[in-house]
Design a protein around this nucleic acid. Sequence first.
RNA 1: GGGGGAUUAGCUCAGUUGGGAGAGCGUCUGGCUGGCAGCCAGAAGGUCAGGGGUUCGAGUCCCCUAUCCUCCA
Length: 878
Amino acid sequence: MKTDELREKYLAFFESKGCVRRPSDVLVPKGDKTVLFTPAGMNQFKSQFLGIGPLEFTRATTCQKCLRTGDISNVGLTAYHHTFFEMLGNFSFGDYFKEEAVLWAWEFLTRKEWLGLDPDRLTVTVYLDDDEAFGIWENQVGLSRDRIRRDDEHENFWPAGAPSEGPDGVCGPCSEIYYHPPTGGKEVEIWNLVFTQFNRVGPPPDNLRPLPKKNIDTGMGLERTAAVLQGVESNFEIDTLKQVCLAAGEAVGVPYAFASEHGRALRRIADHVRAVAMCVHEGVVPDNVKQGYIVRLLLRRAMLEGYLIGKHEPFLYSLVGTVFDVMKAAYPDVAGSTESVATTVREEEEHFLGIVDRGLAKFDRIVERCRKSGEARITGEDAFELHTQDGFLIEMTEAMAARHNLAVDADRFRQLLDVHREKSGAGVFLDAVMAEGPLDAIRKTSGGTQFLGYEVTTVDAKVVGIIAEKQLVESVDEIGEGHPIAVLLDRTPFYGEAGGQVGDVGVISEEGVLFQVLDTQRDDDLLLHIGHLRRGTLSVGDTVRAVIDADRRAGIRRAHSATHLLHHALEQTLGPHAMQRGSKVENDALRFDFSHKGPLTPEERLHIEDLINARIAEGAPVSTVVVDQKTAKERGAKMLFGEKYPDRVRMVTMGEFSVELCGGTHLSNTGQVGLCRLIAEEPVAKGVRRIVAYTGHRALERVRETESLLADVARALRVSQPQELVRRAEQLHDEIQTLKRELSQFTKASVGETVETFLSEAETVSGAKIVCRRVDGADRDMLREFADQLRSRAGSAAVLLATEIDGKVALLAAVSKDLISSKGVKAGDCVREAAKAVGGGGGGRPDLAEAGGKDVAKIDDALAAGAAVYRKALGAAG
RNA sequence: GGGGGAUUAGCUCAGUUGGGAGAGCGUCUGGCUGGCAGCCAGAAGGUCAGGGGUUCGAGUCCCCUAUCCUCCA
């Protein structure tokens, strides 16, 4: 059975049991800051499992795109590990329970019209004391007792080990179904049924309280089950992934076969490139933070495998088409983005090869050093430096070291990495309050926060929760900056950061109490006012007044509406491909990333700015309505790729030209933007450009700053009109050049004359001239020129020159080469001795040394002291 | 968010315990020369990212800022 067929059959089967077929959630779940990527099928149903909010349905089934990196080192090595994979699931929220879950699973697996697996090849497990599940398997399914195994809480409980070790919260026993292949190979776990039926409260005993509403959460690995059905020994041999492996072999230049030399490497490439392609499709591009970083890491690990086989140029990008070919049946929208995803991947590959290239120089130096010192291995410190500064994965350093017959101290490396991890710490500000447990608890007791900020800026509300240090607290009285505190209200005017728009700031107050809100974040339907208490004691249950900084909000509204105008202007100017890739909206400032190849021309920039300001000038009305998704689509609202929208959406319309789905705060008329100026246009990633623009006050200030800067420069350069600035600057530059040249020629000439005099008046010791003179009005460069000329004209010379610069003494000594080698005369000895006389110090090389001192009056003493050193050195040796 | 590193000629980069700013490529000029990075000679081109400090003296040491790279979260 093909993988696509399996996926469809599963969903169809559970639809026939009354489950609502829901689309896969996106890979980066929105409104859930507790995970980087969607790790399992149940993730999108978190609030349903918690019993929060209205239930539109009580049974569901999905095929969920998932990404996990915990077992990344096993990928390609074992038969079943992946980073990206698909999870088939059926879910019950207080609806059906164990009996149905078990019987339906059995029916789907064994009935001819569904999977038709041989029942004799299946065994199951249940949790130690879950007699209910045991009974269902034995009596209703009819399995003999020897095919039902009881396992402990680490195997058959979710979360693993929860009863004795926690965490607190919903949990339950599970039951797993195993397949035993006819080849006699190892058994395969193909389905895990989780019976969520307890709430854990504290440590044992008697800590598992039955839930009033019991849930079902099951997961069946798509690739695993496909492997079973197709009778192959590894997930990578199924119809879909095998194609990617074959394509990877072709791209790297070695044929793929499961047991071949490069099989493991090619499987890794296939797995990682699939994960990368699916992520990039959803707009998660390689980057150095969060999800983007994981994508970059996956991409680089995949590249590394190819690199070590000998492929030293980009190749992953060429696999994107194959990946999307095998994924498009389930996710049709991937087909359209092959080209842009491939371009992004290729760009990152080229980037990485460039980094490796640069790092190779350092690597070679390290190898060379090892060879010289006879070391047999590269130190952990060196490997760590290659890792943290040049992006060399440890595997890469090891493989490349092996080619030079060197090992790598990997233990030390890992030790250093651990220290590094420790030092890096976690994000302190948000982490302290965005804790899952307390948030769920507040959600349960009080429901979501009612947001009133579209209409008003001030709201009287009730405090429903306070979080400090990841704990729910009844009240806070700690004044100050120490630890961030999150306050939750039943209703609020504060906008929580979302859709690129930053969170509001402001104050929450009551009689004698003041809480300053520095940021507002959201967790799904909860709004968290994050900040510090300034006065009094704030307690849960208090009635407070919540007031946002309205001026700042007004600037944010201007910037947000201008963002829509910019989006519109970009499409008009550059074409429909200029789609939004990300945005940030702040107080009168905005940042907008969009798809486009290459930099914009100055004309395009001007045209975009003109278009935006034309829309502002025409004063088009801005209206906001909440409609269902279908209506919005019909109205032609812009939808983003890889973005998942709720069924009811907020649609923002401006005049006749712009319709977007947007939860942000907007103006009522485009004219209120006032002025919009493009400030910068820059690359973010290949195929993605960023525009920064200012609106309102800030745009005006920017213009004024530029003007006043020009005026200042004009004043400084003594021109009456800014138009003359360029000519004036060029003229000045030329003048300085000419003067410098003239000065140095003049100096050389005048030095030449004086040098003759100095030499004729110099004393001679053992055939060498000793010149110790004061040169008034010279600078350090001039002293050098003197020393050079004296040495070259005299042949053998020992020189000490002194001058006064800025009220301090400058000394310079020089000795010709012959005196250094034959008599051991050193300029440094002389200058040090001389410097003592003027209260300073110095040094340098034998042929040239410099020093300085403070006592100008003693310059002659210094010269005498220097001359004495020379005399002694020359005399003693001669 | 934190750690490490980088920033020197148009480009790619050297620059040793602090003591005279360099190379290759490119550009320009002159000469030589039938070829695939033509050859030879000469020249122009630098606030050593910016600011502060230590020092007689800072590209070099310390602090701050900006930008980029990289690792960790």
